[in-house]
Design a protein around this nucleic acid. Structure first.
Lengths: 334, 334
DNA sequence: TGCTATAATGTAAACGATATTACATTTTTT
DNA sequence: AAAAAATGTAATATCGTTTACATTATAGCA
């Protein structure tokens, strides 16, 4: 039904081996034969069947990126970075989404087992350290944007702890002393790392850590609003709030404004990630930027290095953050 | 190196054919043999190689969704819809992004030629009608969220024209008569369709269409701000602005506020799409919702229908919008 | 002219699965 | 109890490539 390498060989008057050699430049072919082959390919509209090729070569040159969702705009920059690095190394990136479901994630990972892809990068994961380590024994995998305690797997993230530290230090330098944090209670370690950065900054300036200033909920922006209400009901409410994600910051700000507070004046709010919304929001949201493009580029480069060297070395690479000042953080009033 | 069907057959003491039959339930196998096979599969940790299977079967059961980017959060809902429908039909969805580049898009489409995937859905496209029609001759493809004039290809979109009509009619019903539109000058027909809806509403209420009330730029939110400045510099500025996308609406609102205008009071702004930001923004953005999940579900169901019936029928399916009222649109002052 | 090195090509065996065919066994029918 | 039908299993060809190996053609050189 379809044009195969045999048809091309026949039309060009050569053997299939020669066609393959022309196709892959894998050996020298006489100029004349090459021309015949190329003409035949054009004539017949031939496209090599990758299933046959990959089956024979035991590789697909495809790396799968597994996303929880495509909801967060900064994944896009990561993907761009991954594509750039992949392309440089002769790989293609395919994506899939799991909706943060463990079962879907493992179903997607089965593409490693059934040889549909050569390697996988997980942008966050529902898998346990044990599952990851098992997987890493037999397959090329990496995690980015999130780390898993005890998983000895190639991991690339922003420097969460120092990023948060910088964010909170910035609040302190604006004379804030009553600083609350909106974090999450899930098992995501990036939240925990960011919490540690928060505490590190407070400690450095001799500001006591107050339990009532710590809120732990979900990643739903609504929870930012809930946190805000809870903080403001305190006898001694904070003057600044550090949120471990921009969406939580947006939720916090939204609720603050609708409750009649003036952002920057009555209360300062800082986010983390630097999603597109930060710039677009009103007021602009001060935040810590993740070097998304670089994260993507780095994780693929390192993963390819592992593949090429035939090793499964696990290591954690932390990339630099960048503090971005906008309007949502201002000097404390007193 | 890897466990193959042969190893399983040997371990189970049956032929490879029997193993294949157990795997695919393609023919009756005695209970005992089946058990032996299943045990061997577990024992050896066997995973069928999809390259072998797909090569033989001439199908992969994978549909590729080609996205311009993952920047727009509502793609996520479309993808969910696609996954649901795909899963119901025994297909998997893989994604890739093109960064809106024609060359990248064609490179991704080559997965159709080289048999990596069975079909492709494009969420918007850079391809011309001619290219699409050519492609549609030999492959199963579909477009969603955007249509291409003259392309006789399966297309699923929201009802852009009537959605915009409803949005503008809503503005009119709030006593607005001076209504501007922020559209785009590219070749995207959804913009043109939405413009038509805008004009349709104005016409219905006998409101003259004023050229100076029509701005055409890019999809960059910044252009919403530019449009706003241009409109407000007019001798008779509008009291309401309909933007053909939420991001443009956000850009418009952002600039309006920073210029000292009160949204809802001095100027009303309406968007289109209902991205996550609309709810989160301050003020909440009134908009026209695209039935994202349904779009995704529908396009896959129709595409699979084409595949199963071995036809490449092109048709345009328009799904219903929903007007969502938030704070950015209020009654005109006078 | 021979002889060797090298370049160009062809042949055929993989890769890992499935489908087809043929054979052997069991079950049903008369 | 023999013939016919149904069922389970094995052997083998096939999908479209790549590639190891074998072969042939060409060039270089004494």
């Amino acid at each position: 039904m379809n044009v195969t390498i045999k048809d091309v060989a026949k039309a060009a008057g050569v053997s299939v081996a020669t066609v393959s050699r022309v196709l892959n430049k894998s050996a020298t072919v006489s100029e004349y034969a090459a021309e015949q082959v190329n003409n035949a390919i054009k004539e017949l509209g031939y496209n090599p069947n990758f299933l046959g090729r990959n089956l024979r070569k035991c590789e697909t040159n495809v790396i799968l990126a597994i996303l929880p969702s495509t909801e967060h705009s900064f994944y896009n920059e990561i993907i761009k970075g991954m594509q750039t690095a992949a392309s440089d190394n002769g790989y293609d990136i395919l994506l899939c989404t799991t909706n943060s479901m463990h079962s879907t994630e493992t179903r997607m990972l089965s593409m490693l087992f059934n040889r549909t892809v050569d390697a996988a990068v997980m942008l966050g994961t529902q898998l346990s350290a044990e599952e990851l380590n098992d997987l890493n024994e037999k397959h090329y995998i990496a995690i980015c944007c999130e780390r898993v305690e005890g998983a000895n797997v190639l991991t690339v993230t922003v420097d969460d702890e120092n990023g948060a530290y910088a964010a909170v230090k910035n609040l302190i330098s604006q004379n804030h002393r009553k600083i609350a944090i909106v974090s999450t209670s899930g098992k995501a370690l990036s939240s925990k790392d960011r919490e540690r950065g928060y505490i590190m900054a407070l400690n450095e300036f001799g500001i006591p850590v107050r339990e009532e200033y710590i809120f732990r909920g979900t990643y739903d922006p609504e929870d930012g609003g809930k946190a805000f209400e809870q903080f403001m009901a305190l006898p001694d409410p904070p003057t600044a709030i550090f949120c471990i994600s921009d969406l939580l910051a947006a939720g916090t700000i939204k609720k603050a404004i609708s409750s009649g507070y003036k952002i920057g004046e009555d209360i300062s709010v800082c986010g983390f990630d630097n999603i597109q919304m930060c710039e677009l929001y009103n007021p602009g949201i001060t935040t810590v930027e993740q070097p998304a493009f670089d994260i993507g580029k780095t994780v693929i480069n390192e993963l390819v290095k592992n593949i090429k060297q035939n090793q499964k070395k696990g290591r954690h690479i932390k990339l630099n953050y960048r503090l971005i000042q906008r309007e949502s953080v201002q000097k404390a009033n007193k």
